[in-house]
Design a protein around this nucleic acid. Structure first.
Lengths: 136, 136
DNA sequence: GTATCTGCAAAACATTTGCAATTCT
DNA sequence: AGAATTGCAAATGTTTTGCAGATAC
């Protein structure tokens, strides 16, 4: 999906409006797991009429269609991610950066869960990242 | 810690007020991972003057002293747990029940994290529990 | 021309804060 | 009395909702 975001949205049943394309492009290219606030601030200069309501609405649609996911790693705000395949998130409690790491489904399931139908999984780790450890 | 909750709070550096004892007892005995609302509603009949502010304050102290933890599995409200050793949480998307399951630290860490200092970990699974699966 | 999409303003809701009253020792 | 605790009322901050205007097909 490196070419046309509009096409990608269509393929996923989403009408590719200007706002939706811009929001998806930003989310896709961001490695920062942006919040609604982050997305709004980043796009405001390009789209001066943008409202946060539209950002909220759009992210909701993306999630319903399975092309984005919410990351509830933060107490206050929800972060969003265009990468929907299984991976873990590490949040540094000093610099607040969120790092991705890989993980497999077998890692997080237990035999006690064999009769449970698992639809989604989230693995969050909290601590201090290497860069912040070196500073102390 | 089956005997005296007041003693347990003292051992953890918390002055055992009536409200604090009642809140900890409720949290400890609950397997439902209650929210602030749940705790408040459950104790209101016993402690008619109780305020939610006190519940918030008390849970904050419990977390600071390491005898309770927040579970951010829900989009809306924070759930609390008196069990602070590592375990995962499964949330049924139909009945909203939260189930515990066991997990080990090696399960959730990746070699890419070897230079990260891990202080806390949360593993959340979402899906359908066996009881709800049978009903469908 | 009708559906959908957008965005403002207000509402909703969980949580936090300021401060005065209460309690405990 | 003095220090900590409690709880009301108001503030805060994120997210949702209602609805009117704009846009797209």
């Amino acid at each position: 999906m490196n070419g046309n975001v509009g096409e990608f949205l269509k393929e996923n049943g989403i009408k590719p409006s200007f706002q939706r394309i811009k929001i998806y492009e930003f989310l896709m290219n961001s490695k920062e797991h942006p919040t609604v606030e982050n997305i709004y601030n980043a796009l405001y200069s390009q789209i001066p009429t943008l409202s946060k309501t539209t950002v909220y609405n759009t992210l909701k649609i993306f999630m319903e269609k399975g092309i984005a996911m919410a990351i509830n790693i933060d107490e206050n705000e929800v972060h969003y991610d265009a990468t929907t395949y299984l991976h873990g998130h590490f949040k540094c409690q000093r610099c607040n950066h969120i790092f991705d790491f890989s993980i497999s489904l077998e890692d997080v399931t237990d035999e006690a869960l064999e009769n449970f139908e698992i639809i989604e999984q989230q693995v969050f780790l909290y601590g201090v990242c290497p860069s912040c450890k070196n500073k102390s």
